[in-house]
Amino acid sequence: MATSIELTQAARDPMIPVPYVVERFLRETNDTFSLELEPFDPTYELAFRPGQFNMLYVFGVGEVPISISGDATDTKRLVHTTREVGVVTRAMRNLKAGHTIGARGPFGTSWPMEEAKGHDVVLVAGGIGLAPLRPALYWILRNRDEYGKVVLLYGTRSPEDILYSKELAKWRSQFDLEVHITVDRATTEWRGNVGVVTKLVGRAPFDPTDTVAMVCGPEIMMRFAVEELTKRGVAEANIYVSMERNMKCGVGLCGHCQLRGEFVCKDGPVYRYDLIEPLFVEREL
């Protein structure tokens, strides 16, 4: 068992993971899953802001940065949703309830929940990019009165790849939230939109002059989303994007996540678009 001494030391050194027990493994789609984690030490206080990430460690395999996909008000349970794409995430898929996993964090900047107050909010998600946006959505729904119109635009490869489908169905039936989903490839049963998510921006119901947009997905998708948003009249300073880079430390010391002068792990991953625009357009930076 993890002793409190271990935890205290872990808290001091950001490179040492904190042990968590896997409470629940949730298969989301064919290649995505969520892990619900609880710290071994019941007194360990979880605290994160929507958009932040943890470095998750699988024993003997390695560590990867994964954004937090749960509710920020839940101080007992940590939720991460990820896609199986590499050695570590594939090992993570084999974790079961009762297994131990390590986590370091939370790291990085967060979605502009304060700045968005009093304005319309558009969330644009591509694929697994919905996971880091879900905490923002939970936040908004808990403080619904503080925000204007709220729109979620979500694009994924096929209807089978839709993440959090039950929650999305529930949200779609709510009157205080607009949810639009589109898929790249439809199946015969699909009655919804087909095409890239950025195409939904043009007809989504929000006031472009009074909107904060939060965009998360593949870089090319974010680029087009920004283009569509600015075309509608959303100021670049009101658009936020979440960047992804290789990370080994999470605290700006390993150098891997650099995007010119930015350490994406600590200066990001969430950026106000106008502040990193030149870095966003240059190739292979």
Binding site: E6, P19, V21, T100
Partner: peptide, 16 residues
Amino acid sequence: SLWRAEREGARFHLLP
């Protein structure tokens, strides 16, 4: 070396 870890069944301990 940053830390070591030992497995014990489904769990592991971290040893700074």
